[in-house]
Design a protein around this nucleic acid. Sequence first.
DNA 1: TTCATACTTCGATCATAACCGAAGCATGAA
DNA 2: TTCATGCTTCGGTTATGATCGAAGTATGAA
Lengths: 227, 227
Amino acid sequence: MKEGPDIALIGSLIGDPARANMLTTLMTGKALTASELAAEAGITAQTASSHLSKLETAGLLTQRKQGRHRYFALADDEVGNLLEAMMGLAAKRGHMRARTGPRDPALRKARVCYNHLAGDYGVRMFDSMVTRDFLAEDGEEIFLTEAGEGFVGELGIALPDLEKSRRPLCRSCLDWSERRTHLAGALGTGLLDRFYDLGWAHRIEGSRVVSFTGEGERRFRECFPEA
Amino acid sequence: MKEGPDIALIGSLIGDPARANMLTTLMTGKALTASELAAEAGITAQTASSHLSKLETAGLLTQRKQGRHRYFALADDEVGNLLEAMMGLAAKRGHMRARTGPRDPALRKARVCYNHLAGDYGVRMFDSMVTRDFLAEDGEEIFLTEAGEGFVGELGIALPDLEKSRRPLCRSCLDWSERRTHLAGALGTGLLDRFYDLGWAHRIEGSRVVSFTGEGERRFRECFPEA
DNA sequence: TTCATACTTCGATCATAACCGAAGCATGAA
DNA sequence: TTCATGCTTCGGTTATGATCGAAGTATGAA
């Protein structure tokens, strides 16, 4: 009777809270062991094992054996993008999870969105680059202008390397905390990586929070002034 | 313990087969009554009523009362886009629904993807326009070239009207049957609408199939030659 | 070998929610 | 008013699957 792809399968996989927690945790981009994911989701190892095997069978996760550990990660960017899209829709409709923990303010300030910068700082960077005509918008599409090429070059980004990848250079991503656009794509990832290299910021272990140093914060504000 | 948008809620809503069927049916873009959706999903009116109220409460559907009928439609483009993204991922992973009905070949040839043309014809149109430099690709981003502006103008598309809308003019959409890209966005919708106006094609009632007339097919092939 | 750790499989329990029959409530027609 | 239609609410049944304890398998360390 029904034709077409089975979205109910994908939906029900993401629809279980324990699995949704695991997937959200993996949005950090880091591969994690089965036990770590179990702890994160608040379930026992047995239950987690069952969930993880379902997610892997369905092709949402990949698994890498290393000694007696099994590391799990999102299968590819497309899975990450889908999760982002669902977060965007959920946030817009006001479907937030009940308990907002103590990490929440830091998370709203600056966090990783799979592999690029999100939160207040992510939006600020994007706005600043648009205001100074380094980025141009056309609906949902975003391009790096010539001036922008010079700008990221001075920051120490090797554009040719980024353009080699099959990923689009610039992509817009809806920020769930700010409800505004920030920069994703290869350039978004490249910029965040560059901030790490410059020592401006580092990741807080076990969370999506990106913590800026005092000096890093100063340089970041200098580099991306508000309008 | 957990922060952020509740993707599990959205996932579980889409994760029920009956609801997924209803949502997929509404991808045609047409508003349907509760009874029609119940029949489509193969459930009784009572059960459908419960599902529909959940989907409406969550903000995935909108409802319009008209006499004693209640018409349901997808809440907005963002919901449609999410469903498309899930179909793309499901198709790529090989998660297809069991029974492929008799309408399947027609569906693969030409169908509506929420509001634009998909299937073999959708992909062909896209490829043809890229080959002749009417459309330019940059990763996932797509732009209409100057030559392209002339081309769609000759077809009778009023570009300024399309650009007035808040939707992006060109957007890429992954075709689940062809596993290749076709054209979405305001221009994608505009082109399909123009084909209806020109009498080249019409929708088959109660399905996503787009049926071309003999003459329409000839004109379409003329307009979008293969490489 | 022996033991410890990381993970999976099995089996049983239990909560959730999908489902339908029956009854109720609107809306429109006669 | 009376009746028919479209849809919702209520109540009870049933199936699904999330969960964990216990036992089993693989890997590495002593």
